[in-house]
Amino acid sequence: MPIELENVSFSYGINTPFEKKALNEVNLKINEGELWLFIGHTGSGKSTLLNTLNGLIIPNGKVTVDTLQTNNKNTNMKELRKKVGIIFQYPESQFFLPTIAEEILYAPKNFDVDLKKEEIKFYMDIVGLPYDYLNRSPFSLSGGEMRKVAIISVLSYNPKYIIFDEPTVGLDYSTRKSVFNTVKKLNNMGKTIILSTHWISEFLELKPLVAIMKNSNLIFKGKFDDFIKLDQNFLSEAGIIFDEKLELYKKALLKNDKLKDKIAML
């Protein structure tokens, strides 16, 4: 079953001088096993949209996750949030337990999930964190290692949909690469991944689906290659700038399209 958003709108500070529209009539369908990149300017509405997917924000319109509607008073929100795990920006700021093992086990206990030792080791292997770290304090780790613990803490209750909201903010290149590899592994395992990022080219080989947010509006949703071929002014106005890798890929795509057109005219 998919995640579906129908005419989703949301404003902060309603009926105050600081009222600001964050989402405007957003419609989107996310199917099982897909990988989506949400991109756009800071403040475009990406994080707000992601937070509607597991009921942290209840918008106007309809958000449905596997038939569960977030704005239905009869919906079991614990069941819904067990399906949709979110890894926030700087998730390590939410650590509060003395050991890594306790941090990892906290969410499974909350969701009544029996997490076995071999499963913990499996998740630690996925993110590249040594198993003998379990008895360490999470506050003794490097920033990148803390981010990995935060990811394991979400993987630990085995959510069907995994949301990464700017997961590489503040990380060095090596750790950023490790997080990207983790995303790829999870998607290859069949997990549905929804990711807000500015680092688009890292996902070129996976050809993810792309959603562009601008000024609270969803202005593009579609296949990766269709996104790549969008007009440069359209992309720039949405705060999207291609690096050299994406520029080369775009040139190759456009060259291939011209070749196809010539063949079709023969």
Rank of each mutant, 00 (worst) to 15 (best):
Y90L: 12
P91L: 03
E92G: 02
S93F: 13
S93T: 14
F96I: 09
F96D: 03
L97D: 05
P98W: 02
T99P: 14
T99H: 12
I100E: 06
A101S: 09
A101V: 11
E102M: 07
E103N: 05
L105T: 10
Y106W: 10
Y106K: 02
P108G: 06
P108R: 00
P108L: 02
P108C: 09
K109L: 08
K109Q: 15
K109W: 10
N110Q: 06
N110T: 15
N110E: 01
N110M: 06
N110Y: 10
F111M: 00
D112N: 15
D112L: 09
L115G: 10
K117A: 14
E118N: 15
E118M: 08
I120P: 13
K121A: 15
F122L: 10
F122N: 15
F122T: 08
Y123K: 10
V127F: 04
V127K: 05
G128E: 02
G128V: 01
L129I: 13
L129H: 08
Y131Q: 12
Y131N: 12
D132K: 01
D132H: 04
Y133N: 10
Y133P: 04
Y133M: 14
N135W: 06
N135D: 15
R136I: 07
R136M: 13
S137I: 07
P138S: 03
P138A: 05
F139G: 01
L141F: 03
G143Y: 05
G144C: 03
G144A: 01
E145C: 08
V149L: 13
A150H: 04
I152N: 07
I152Y: 11
I152W: 12
S153K: 01
V154Y: 02
S156A: 15
N158D: 13
Y161S: 13
I163N: 00
I163G: 09
F164G: 06
E166Q: 06
P167N: 03
P167W: 03
T168V: 13
G170T: 03
G170W: 00
L171Y: 02
Y173D: 08
Y173T: 11
S174Q: 03
S174I: 13
T175Y: 07
T175N: 11
N181W: 03
T182I: 09
K184A: 12
N188S: 14
K191G: 06
I193N: 09
I200T: 10
E202G: 14
E202T: 10
F203G: 10
L204W: 01
L204D: 05
L206A: 11
K207A: 11
